[in-house]
Simulated assay, not measured.
Amino acid sequence: MADDIVNVKGIRGMLPPSRSTTLPILAIATHVEITILYDKYEMRFSQTGSPISTLTAGIDVSESPSWDPDTGLRDLVECFGRAPLTSLTVGILHPHLVVDAWERVFRTFPLLEDLDIDGEYEFSQVFLGLHAASSKEHEGSSVACPNLRQVSAVGLGVTEAYEAMRECFQYRADRGARLQVLDLSMLVNKDLPSETLCGFVADLRQAVECLRVEDN
């Protein structure tokens, strides 16, 4: 599929009503990578063993000051809501993504196994959203995304991010869905005392099977 640029209405606005027939890959994709910037977002998706396809939505921020970065997450759900997604990579290059949008993502993709978060901002909203989704009732499981086994995250090492991860992963562990691997690459935050950081790391080690932490 060739790259496409669409307006602020988002990628879902360009898709035909019969998308399952016209673009069947949307219903069978197993991996999606979405990058959210200040003025656009891009989604790349594939099925195991298939070529990667790309969709890009961009706007002129000077003409659209009300650009909503959560449009990218909403389009992710709208476009791939029927897909058996097992792997999701999100590049967060915009600081304002709300918890509700993340919650909907995790409630939509119950088969998710691998989650990769990469950005230069703090990412507490991601895990607040996962925890919120897990706190709701789920048919056949005690948490959202019960098969989630590996999480990699790059971002600013702030208290809110560590607290969100601690609460989320301990809650999941208590319900039999302990994360196998949590791989963190945290940008150094001088406002976070080393004693507090060590406490967070110790708590996370109790909540997951394997924790790797790298300070940058």
Rank of each mutant, 00 (worst) to 15 (best):
S20C: 03
H96F: 12
D203Y: 10
I5R: 14
S194D: 14
A202H: 09
Q150E: 14
E209M: 04
I11P: 09
L15F: 03
M43V: 09
A101V: 00
S50N: 08
A57D: 14
D75M: 04
T54I: 11
E195D: 15
L73Q: 00
I11Y: 05
Q180R: 13
T159S: 15
S134N: 05
T196C: 03
N189C: 14
V188T: 15
S152G: 13
D118T: 12
L111I: 00
V90S: 04
Q125F: 10
V188P: 11
D75Q: 01
L85H: 01
L182K: 05
G91M: 02
D39N: 13
L187F: 11
K40V: 03
A153N: 05
Y121N: 08
H131D: 10
L204Y: 06
E63H: 11
N147E: 10
T89K: 12
V77G: 06
Y171F: 15
E160F: 04
V105G: 02
F200G: 03
A153D: 03
V151D: 00
S135Y: 03
Q47I: 00
L182A: 05
V181S: 08
I52Y: 06
H138Y: 08
M186Q: 12
M165N: 05
N216P: 12
R178T: 10
M1N: 08
P84N: 01
H94D: 13
F200L: 02
G58C: 11
S66M: 09
L76I: 03
G129A: 07
P65T: 04
R178P: 02
G81S: 10
F80E: 00
C198N: 11
A27S: 15
V61D: 10
L15M: 14
F127V: 02
